[in-house]
Simulated assay, not measured.
Amino acid sequence: MLSGVAKRYTSLFLKSIFIISLFIFIIQTFLVYHDHIIGSWYIFKVSSTGLQASLTMTSKIVAIGAILIWFFQVTQVKDIAAAMQNAGWNKKLIFVMLSTMQLIPQMTSMMNTIADAQRSRGVETEGNLITRMKSFVPMLGPVVLTSIEQNEERVLTLESRAFSNRQRPTLMVPVNKTKADYLLSWIIIIIMLGIFYWGVFK
């Protein structure tokens, strides 16, 4: 809410992490059980062990997923790349990480473009589940071929910009850290060390 992305964040969270967590919670609750049965419905049984295992697993998924969704809602990819370069990371490692971050948005945009092209040719891409599945399978081929073609273009673009050069590149996006950034970094390091100490020695 303080970041100003509450509406967009909530919508994305409910469409992704919440659905996955709810599905895993239901499956774990009814499939993992032992002697301590606390409830039953037809052939399904709920035990305290299964309920505890479900809460543990889904809480971890929600915690990690919620943080990642919020992080990418308030941070642009170019700022992440600039911060990594400013910290002296290997540019090949930066490229691999950024490519992974951009993979899903690029595939989604590509799927939408191909779906629009198929609709313009009279192919039904909307309707019930069966109709969508029938239209989804023919789109896989163009998506894979387009991805391969884009990778080749990306390699040529990187080489034209002297990606393989060993010299340090010039930062086009400046990253200016304030005292609050350094203070927050030290606070996070101290907290992580405390969690590590507590988990190992307690």
Rank of each mutant, 00 (worst) to 15 (best):
M101L: 14
G88K: 06
R166A: 14
I187F: 08
V46I: 13
I94M: 05
V74A: 03
T56Q: 11
R119F: 05
V173G: 00
I67Q: 01
S47C: 00
T108A: 14
F72I: 12
R119G: 05
S99P: 02
V155C: 02
I27G: 01
L171A: 06
K177G: 00
A83Y: 03
I17A: 01
V123N: 08
N151T: 09
K179P: 03
I20P: 05
E126F: 12
N151G: 13
L22K: 12
S160T: 13
F163D: 06
A82C: 12
Q102F: 02
K60G: 01
I38R: 15
H34I: 06
I191T: 06
P105M: 01
A6R: 10
S21T: 01
N90P: 02
M133R: 15
T10Y: 13
S11A: 14
L55N: 02
Q76W: 05
V155W: 10
K91Y: 00
L171M: 12
S135F: 04
S160F: 08
I24K: 03
W89I: 07
L31C: 11
Q118M: 10
D181Y: 11
S11Q: 13
I188M: 15
H36D: 11
V5W: 10
G122D: 14
I195H: 03
S47A: 01
Y42R: 15
N112I: 12
I64L: 11
T108C: 09
I64G: 01
G199N: 06
L140Q: 11
L193G: 00
Q106T: 11
M110S: 12
I190F: 10
Y197S: 08
L158E: 00
Y33R: 09
G88I: 05
P142I: 00
A81W: 07
G65K: 05
I38C: 05
